[in-house]
């Protein structure tokens, strides 16, 4: 028996919004530590890694490890039927070929359940080692979303250059060029609003705007985003999900022709 109940059901709605444009299907791997999902987008340029810890749920039971392959469009359709304040419960029997989503309104007056067929997905998993990055940048997630949106008007790719002075986002295209520089916040009143840079070595890498824009669909999950970069390895864009886990996106840098 698998059962995961979340009073803050809107978290699951936001998680689906954060992955459904990038992934068409994915496997939710559930064990007694929680729910994990790892999947590459169709073109294998980026990778999504989601972790929701068991202790972040209001009730969590997983008697046997189960892997539930799901069509994410279908999951998104179902979760759209949940109210923002609803409690969401996912449950499945051992060896089941369906999963059930139960939504309860705050006053318990409306209870809905949606049963969805599971899929057998034979997807590759990649081993991502713990890595020390040359630069990590923490900044408001809404600011990062704004920068990605603004710069993608200028070109298909964006250069992110991090030095100890700050971080510069640049794009160049037919209409011209754009540069946005963010300095490290001098004094931090509210950590959520700060730009904080930790740098061992300066790094400059180029990424596809389209994917960065997909990643910013996670903005509502966290007020802050963390970018981690080292030369010649994928960028990590991480949104922490309060008290329950995180979603990380990995994006391979563009290599100059």
């Amino acid at each position: 028996m698998f059962e995961a109940r979340l009073l803050r059901g809107s978290i699951l709605k936001k998680v689906l919004e954060a992955i459904k444009d990038l992934l068409t299907q994915a496997t939710f791997d559930c064990d007694d530590s929680g729910i994990q999902l790892q999947a590459m987008d169709n073109s294998h340029v980026s990778l999504v890694s989601l972790q929701l810890r068991a202790d972040g749920f209001d009730k969590y039971r997983c008697d046997r490890n189960i892997s539930m392959g799901m069509n994410l469009n279908s999951v998104a359709k179902i979760l759209k039927c949940a109210g923002d304040k609803d409690t969401v419960t996912m449950k499945a029997q051992d060896n089941a070929d369906t999963v059930t989503f139960v939504f309860e309104s705050p006053n318990q007056e409306k209870v809905s359940d949606y049963e969805m067929k599971l899929m057998n997905l034979d997807l590759e998993h990649l081993g991502i080692p713990e890595t020390e990055y040359s630069c990590t940048i923490r900044m408001p997630s809404a600011e990062f979303a704004r920068i990605c949106r603004d710069l993608s008007q200028f070109g298909d790719s964006m250069v992110i250059a991090c030095t100890k002075e700050g971080v510069k986002f640049s794009a160049t295209g037919e209409i011209g060029s754009a540069n946005i520089k963010l300095a490290q916040t001098a004094s931090v009143d509210k950590e959520e609003e700060a730009v904080i840079i930790e740098m061992d070595e300066p790094v400059t890498l180029t990424f596809a705007c389209q994917y960065l824009n997909y990643f910013t669909k996670a903005t509502s999950l966290s007020p802050q985003v963390q970018l981690s970069m080292s030369a010649d390895v994928p960028l990590v864009v991480e949104y922490r999900i309060q008290d329950i886990g995180h979603i990380r996106y990995y994006l391979a840098p563009k290599i100059e022709d």
């Binding site: 294998h44 990649l126 081993g127 391979a252």
Partner: peptide, 14 residues
């Protein structure tokens, strides 16, 4: 390099 295999260039398949 095939674009298809970009991510698995960086991380080993399990």
């Amino acid at each position: 390099i095939e674009r298809q295999d970009l991510m698995s260039l960086y991380y080993p398949k399990l």
